[in-house]
């Protein structure tokens, strides 16, 4: 179980996150909602160790973790906002590079790439240069990279942003299917999407948690969202 405890984050004088606490249980998907600039990306960056918190801690199975340690990072698959990729590589080369850095052994790399490529439906484009892929396929490559090495925690920052409705549904179904044996934290601006795939929803407003509730207990999400973040 991943636990976030009293996380605060300031950049210089600016307080971006205030006392954020929540947890993600095994086999569950938690949705992170909130207006632009609420602090979703910053929170995710803290969990993956890209930023360090000004205060507070991250716990794994009850023990405090150093988010910059290799041990913590190897539990995590991260798809950052805007899906950064090396445009001059092919999908296959990219996945190979990430596999190597994830310390997947040489013998297993091929098999592992085959597995995630199949999951994400990109087997046929692995030899294509990433730059030439459509946005939806780029997104799949990014997601496939996050899945390499079968990480226990997936942190996905707006994985469906900018995709067409069909792609959104496909990626959404894919993510839903991943939740077995994993904990997933996903941020999105699409409320129906959050409603459909997440067991629990957290709304952040101006760096503070405004709501943390089981999805099925929330009656009218749209209305609630507007109320809490207006």
């Amino acid at each position: 179980m991943l636990k976030v405890e009293n996380i605060n984050k300031s950049f210089k004088e600016k307080e971006v996150l205030k006392d954020i606490s929540f947890e993600i249980k095994k086999n569950s998907i938690v949705g992170l909602l909130g207006p632009n600039g609420a602090g979703k990306t910053t929170l995710m960056r803290i969990i993956v160790g890209f930023y360090s918190a000004s205060n507070g801690k991250i716990l794994w199975d009850g023990k405090k973790v150093d988010t910059r340690s290799e041990k913590h990072k190897s539990r995590i698959g991260y798809l950052p906002e805007n899906n950064p990729l090396y445009m001059n590589l092919t999908g296959g080369e990219y996945l190979e590079y990430i596999s190597e850095l994830k310390q997947i052994s040489k013998e297993e790399i091929k098999e592992e790439i085959f597995k995630v490529a199949q999951q994400c439906g990109i087997q046929n484009v692995l030899s294509q240069q990433i730059e030439t892929l459509s946005k939806g396929y780029k997104q799949r490559v990014g997601l496939a990279a996050a899945l390499l090495g079968d990480p226990k925690i997936l942190i996905l920052d707006e994985p469906t942003s900018g995709l067409d409705p069909n792609q959104i549904i496909e990626i959404r179904d894919l993510i839903k299917g991943l939740s077995k044996n994993k904990m997933i934290l996903i941020s999105t601006h699409i409320l129906p999407e959050a409603r459909e795939i997440c067991e629990r929803l957290i709304i952040i407003n101006r760096g503070e948690i405004a709501l943390n509730e089981e999805t099925k207990k929330i009656k009218n999400l749209e209305k609630k969202f507007v109320e809490l973040t207006a």
Binding site: P80, P84, M87
Partner: peptide, 11 residues
């Protein structure tokens, strides 16, 4: 290109 964000999330 923000790719360092991917790299530094790896072990």
């Amino acid at each position: 290109n923000s790719t360092w964000e991917v790299l530094l999330s790896l072990p």
